Simulated assay, not measured.
Amino acid sequence: MPLPAAFPPTSLPPDTPAALTLVGVGPGDPRLLTVAAVEAIRAAIVVAYPVARLGASGMAAAIAAPWITPQQVQLPLLFPMVSEAAPLRQAWHAAADTLAAAVLEAAGQGGSVVLLCEGDVSLFASSSYVLLALRQRHPALPVQLIPGVSAVAAAAAAGAWPLALQQESLLIRPTPETPEALEALLDRAAAGAEVLALLKLGHRWAWVRPLLEQRGLLDQALFAQRVGWPDQQVASARVVEAGAAPYFSLLLIRQSWPEVLP
């Protein structure tokens, strides 16, 4: 079924302040939350956040912890770390229904609901799937989005690494599954003056590093893991040994520079 381009007007009373706000909380450092994000969290009656399994703590909730109070209702939503379609759809639909019910309850108290999202709410985000599920299942629900700092931007800042200059393109995508696919991507990027941001590096670093070394790109790549957390690592790819990296790790690869530079 086609999705509506935008949410229609809310079916709640027009003077009701209750709403659902999807809040990007950045990659890890609480100081990177925007003023809008902090204000939305502080004003909420219910603070929802994703968890990978029941009873687990959420990374997004940990980032936003300085602004969550004991008086607020904390609502963990299960988003399993699986690749099968059926359990993912079930989780997104359940989250949409739970959030819609929370908004209606908050309406009676004159409050609002927020859903926290690590990084940005629109970039490889679980909240994007919840948004699409809400459009299908609760199209009259009022929803707003507050963007957050992405791990790509935070890593570039931590490494003093210009992401894109002048007429360059920036390509952000998950790390390919095979060396052959990465070779083809690097060839494309080199031909088109594209800077690559490869997310979800993880266990692939064991074969990605030797491939970069073979192509002479180790000194032109920035490795970053757990950006914004106390144990973050941001360094030249050359100094990072091959092996499995955390799921929340990424690479920035620049194969050329513009002709006009300082």
Rank of each mutant, 00 (worst) to 15 (best):
V121S: 01
V121H: 08
V121C: 05
V121Q: 04
S122W: 11
S122N: 13
S122Q: 09
L123Y: 12
L123T: 09
L123Q: 07
F124T: 01
F124S: 10
F124R: 01
A125W: 01
A125M: 01
A125K: 00
S126G: 13
S126Y: 05
S126F: 02
S127D: 11
S127T: 14
S127E: 02
S128N: 07
S128Q: 05
S128K: 02
Y129R: 06
V130P: 02
V130M: 00
V130D: 02
V130Y: 01
L131I: 02
L131E: 03
L132F: 06
L132M: 13
L132R: 13
A133D: 01
L134M: 06
L134T: 04
L134K: 03
R135E: 03
R135M: 10
Q136C: 11
R137V: 11
R137G: 07
R137N: 14
H138Y: 06
H138S: 07
H138D: 06
P139M: 13
P139H: 08
A140P: 03
A140L: 06
A140W: 07
A140Y: 07
A140T: 14
A140M: 08
L141T: 11
L141P: 08
L141V: 14
L141R: 08
L141Y: 05
P142F: 03
P142Y: 02
P142E: 00
P142K: 02
V143Q: 04
V143M: 05
Q144G: 12
L145W: 13
L145F: 09
L145Y: 05
L145S: 14
I146L: 13
I146N: 03
P147V: 00
P147H: 06
G148M: 08
V149F: 12
V149E: 04
V149N: 06
V149G: 01
S150Y: 10
S150P: 10
S150L: 11
S150G: 12
S150M: 07
A151C: 15
A151V: 15
A151F: 12
A151N: 12
A151L: 14
V152P: 02
V152K: 09
A153M: 15
A153P: 09
A155R: 05
A155E: 00
A155Q: 03
A155I: 10
A156D: 02
A156G: 14
A156Q: 10
A156L: 12
A157M: 06
A157G: 10
A157T: 11
A157W: 07
A158E: 10
A158H: 14
A158S: 15
A158T: 12
A158P: 04
G159N: 10
G159R: 04
A160V: 15
A160L: 15
A160W: 12
W161L: 12
W161K: 08
W161Q: 10
W161G: 08
